[in-house]
Amino acid sequence: MKVILAQPRGFCAGVIRAVETVELALEQYGAPVYVRHEIVHNQHVVEGLRAKGVRFVEDLEEVPANALTIFSAHGVGKDVENHARQRQLKVLDATCPLVTKVHNQGRQYAAKGYQVILIGEAGHPEVIGTLGQIPAPVILVRNVAEVQTLDFPPLTPLAYITQTTLSLDDTYTVVEALKQRYPHIVGPDTRDICYAVQNRQAAVRELSRCSDLVLVVGSVRSANSVTLRDIASASGKPSYLIANGSAVRNEWFGNGTTVGITAGASTPESMVDDVIAALARIAPLEIEVLPGREEHVQFRLPVGLAARQ
């Protein structure tokens, strides 16, 4: 069996920052550390941190007075920030800086009098947080069909922003539909979608071209992992989203199958290694890494943490 690894794959700078924030908080403040929502959407990462003394909560009322609280990489709304202040909790904000950028864009548009339209998945934590960061009504749309249901007067000042983890192609299609209906609409370039999402999506397209089958290692709750699987499927290749090697099935493979492997931005490389080990139990492997974009982005840690020496 030939295995081709996508490049880049796995952890992005925002996830690295979020996970490191939690690990450093444990080292510098001691357990328990409380995290509102899963720090990233990967069960292996979450369980590993839970074993070290992290407690994940959905409501700040679950956090004891004076306890250290961390906001997840997905971001939170102003109501959560205010609740933390009211309870006088010590907070470390691990929101991905690229998500914070979207919050800032939305607030700026609202302050200028625009009706803001958010392109995103209803109910996703990032979307909930973004909606809660903009002090004005925001319209949420996910696809072209929902764009067609909008009914703004012709001269309504409109602006759009986007969830960071969506498919670049899908987002472009929605933006073009908005522009067609409302030519005066303003918004960021679709290239402003998270650099890591763009790079991984480009890599999985290339991977699909040279593979018989594609495995995306990640969580079904991870929007960017689901998108990678969808992109691979759209290429016409059998594609599976799996959490780890235990999900690999022998019947997926024939003699001489070329298997492409990539991983979502919240997936640690250890889970990719676990999948490779599972494949090695099926057949001898020939492994190569697809040439691709190297990422050197680093984000500063939240205020209140000292970096490891």
Rank of each mutant, 00 (worst) to 15 (best):
P64Q: 14
G30A: 08
T95K: 10
V80R: 04
P32L: 03
V63C: 14
A110I: 15
P64A: 14
R87W: 10
Y114W: 02
A65S: 13
G113W: 06
V40K: 00
N42T: 07
K112T: 12
K90H: 11
N82F: 13
I117S: 09
C96V: 04
V40Q: 01
K78M: 08
V33P: 03
G30N: 04
G120L: 03
G77H: 08
K101C: 06
V80A: 03
G113H: 07
K112G: 13
A51G: 09
Y114M: 04
V57S: 14
A94K: 09
E62H: 06
L89I: 00
I70T: 06
V102Q: 11
H41L: 01
V63E: 15
Q108S: 13
E58L: 14
V46F: 04
E58V: 10
Y29N: 14
G77V: 12
V57F: 14
G106F: 01
Y29K: 15
Q108G: 10
L89A: 00
N104F: 08
L118C: 05
A84C: 03
P32C: 00
T69R: 04
T95W: 11
P97W: 10
A65I: 14
F56C: 09
G113Q: 03
A65K: 14
L92D: 07
V102M: 09
V116N: 00
D79I: 08
K52I: 00
G77M: 08
Y109F: 13
Q88G: 08
N66V: 00
E38H: 12
R55L: 12
H83W: 13
L60Q: 08
H74P: 03
C96M: 06
I119K: 01
D93P: 06
L60R: 07
Q43E: 14
I70D: 08
A65F: 13
A73W: 03
V54I: 12
A73M: 02
E81I: 07
K90F: 05
N82G: 02
N104K: 15
K52W: 02
G77Y: 05
R85H: 06
S72D: 10
F71V: 04
Q43F: 11
A94T: 11
E61H: 15
R50Q: 11
K112I: 11
N42S: 11
R85S: 09
S72Q: 07
C96F: 05
N66G: 09
T69N: 12
Q115R: 15
F71C: 02
V57A: 12
R36W: 05
A111V: 02
P32T: 02
E121W: 01
P32F: 03
E38L: 07
V54N: 04
Y109S: 09
E61R: 12
R55A: 13
F71D: 00
Q108D: 09
L98E: 02
V45E: 12
E62R: 09
L89K: 02
